[in-house]
Design a protein around this nucleic acid. Structure first.
Lengths: 351, 351
DNA sequence: ACTCGGAATTGAACCGATTCATCGGCTCAA
DNA sequence: TTGAGCCGATGAATCGGTTCAATTCCGAGT
């Protein structure tokens, strides 16, 4: 181990300022009961020694002034939207954000959240959709907790979530309205779409099935599974496009998948509409111009942090907030080539 | 404050297992000198109580088994490439990664790094190019440190950096080779390009100036400044494209800026080549197809973490690693419309 | 039977902050 | 003059682990 200088402690500050440790502690937390004269002396000593309190020591009795946020996947840019909002919400507070990545399997969510709890954070924002509600309830008994993107309504923790049913309906109605009938749904593996598990992807899938049935296209239903990331999505979409009859539109469960699908469509040289979900920044790029659903990730992240701060301040009744999504139609979706007017084959024959 | 259950402590474990606290501690760290029988008893007690040691308490004497990484901007996807590599390098180690975002001004870099140091991390990987070497040296006396993207060669900390001079030369030679003469350089504000400050952007700028001069085009030099993010880059590029004479190519200092520039070019309806730097994932998308320089961010992130682990294990001699970049030519760069063959106006006249 | 040596185990000190009961000094009213 | 009340400041206890010197245990050697 390399030779390292010792950090100055509160004891050192107290000695150089000629006061007690307790006094220094009070100044640090600007607690009640310090004379201006003493505060000045102590501040001078702190400045002189370049003293900084150790969070680990503070955390043993007081609080760590640290909030933890767990993120499943940095590859998904929607999560960076959330992060941006969360970061913004902490400006001007004494809290520091630390992020625990959970890339890997579904078990990584537990690991990352526990890692945060072990570090005595004052509160946690988490995203993993796969951890069980019971486990979260138990966690919430010890640490204030806000979950992002969960539809369960716990009494122990708060939730901030987009209205996935409404958003998926926007997409389906948009595609059906354009005249599409052979609409495929590109989504993640079964474990994140277990029916009525309440994950966003399970809801988007359910709405897809329900809407296709309501429109009388249940025989056109086609659900394609893929792993995380656009490479996997591209491969899955490519395979889909090779099989007959090819769909005229693909509803991807989130934008990263949609980006991969666009790649496959481009590669295959077909005219297939693609819609995504999340409205990540790149979706607006002219060369991509992806139709998608905006669920204002920054605001969700910001709101989650504010709820957490409320909870730390003492609130105990749970809050469950739902954000209304909006459709952002762009060039990646258009009427199918084969039918001239929407929804009416007769019109096409007459044209 | 909401009523919260008490965490089980090492004392509780010791009591239920019928051994001493010291014994439990040894089992936790699987240190030398525990009988299999005792280990089994202790493990059972830990399991039974759902005990998890508190990192804060461990950190007071031992280590926190936490590595910190400071990231200036989540909006820049190159940094998420670095993060991906860093995360991968920690799989299978007892260390947990925590990330401190430094979004905001240049002072945020100091804040975020200090926040990590305050949290007693066992080592730090940092990216901010603007913090001073002296400050970093002082930090490195206390905490093992690896800097990403810095060209200074400190004795106190390691560095992992791409060869920015070589990378920029690849881009310039590519553009010049295609026949471009009016090449503009789109880069960040002056504070990150101070000459010989050693920041990547200062080097890319210096190479641009040097190459333009060497090719005899110093009168075509055009440096455009922009803030962070593609919106700002788009605005700056749009303004550039409105001024006469319009450049035939834009070398953007990194891909996010290039994406913004592409947007402005598309908007203006001009035929202007755009090249970037970093090879973020989206650059390969068909609709974007951005010519750029790959500096294998994942490997850099991975390498940085490995060097940090080495340092924690005891290494003291500094290591300075340089990654060789490669050019990735794509459709966003092509020969300028006005000259038929490269570099020879005479040939165009004869054609 | 007795000593010796090494491994297993323990008790107590320690890390650096916060917290709280207590104390000293000062003001002001009786 | 005395005592109540208040405020600023302090010493000691405390948080939950790790570390280390000291102690016990156990089997081998004489």
């Amino acid at each position: 181990m390399q030779e390292q200088k010792r950090h100055p402690t509160i004891e050192d500050v107290a000695r150089t300022a000629g006061v007690s440790r307790a006094a220094v502690s009070k100044v640090l937390r600007n607690a009640y009961g310090v004379s201006p004269a003493m505060k000045e002396r102590v501040d001078a000593a702190i400045e002189h020694l370049h003293y900084r309190p150790r969070v680990a020591a503070r955390a043993m009795r007081g609080s760590s002034f640290t909030l933890g946020i767990e993120i499943p996947d940095f590859g998904n840019h929607f999560f960076t939207r959330l992060l941006g909002g969360a970061t913004r919400a902490l400006v001007g507070t004494p809290y520091q954000l630390i992020i625990a990545p959970a890339e890997g399997g579904s078990q990584e969510g537990y690991r990352a959240i526990e890692a945060l709890a072990d570090r005595q954070v004052d509160g946690i924002v988490a995203i993993s959709p796969l951890v069980s509600p019971e486990w979260l309830e138990r966690l919430a008994e010890r640490t204030p907790l806000v979950m992002l993107g969960r539809h369960d309504r716990s009494t122990g923790y708060d939730t901030v979530v987009g209205d996935d049913a409404a958003g998926a309906r926007l997409v389906l109605d948009h595609l059906l309205g354009l005249g599409h009938r052979r609409i495929a749904h590109l989504t993640r593996s079964e474990d994140v779409t277990v029916p009525s598990s309440g994950t966003p992807h399970s809801i988007r899938l359910a709405v897809y099935l329900e809407r296709m049935r309501a429109a009388g296209h249940e025989n056109q239903v086609r659900v394609v599974r893929t792993g995380e990331g656009e490479e996997a999505a591209e491969a899955a979409a490519a395979e889909l496009l090779r099989s007959e009859p090819t769909p005229t539109a693909i509803f991807a469960a989130h934008d990263e998948l949609a980006i991969g699908a666009l790649r496959a469509v481009d590669e295959a040289g077909l005219d297939v509409s693609v819609a995504g979900y999340d409205d990540i920044r790149i979706a607006a790029q002219p060369g991509i111009s992806l139709t998608t659903v905006d669920q204002s990730g920054e605001e969700m992240g910001e709101r989650a942090v504010r709820l957490l701060l409320d909870r730390i301040a003492g609130r105990t009744e749970p809050v469950h907030e739902v954000f209304a999504p909006t459709l952002v139609p762009r060039r990646s979706t258009r009427a199918p080539a084969e039918s001239v007017t929407a929804g009416s084959p007769a019109a096409a024959a007459a044209g």
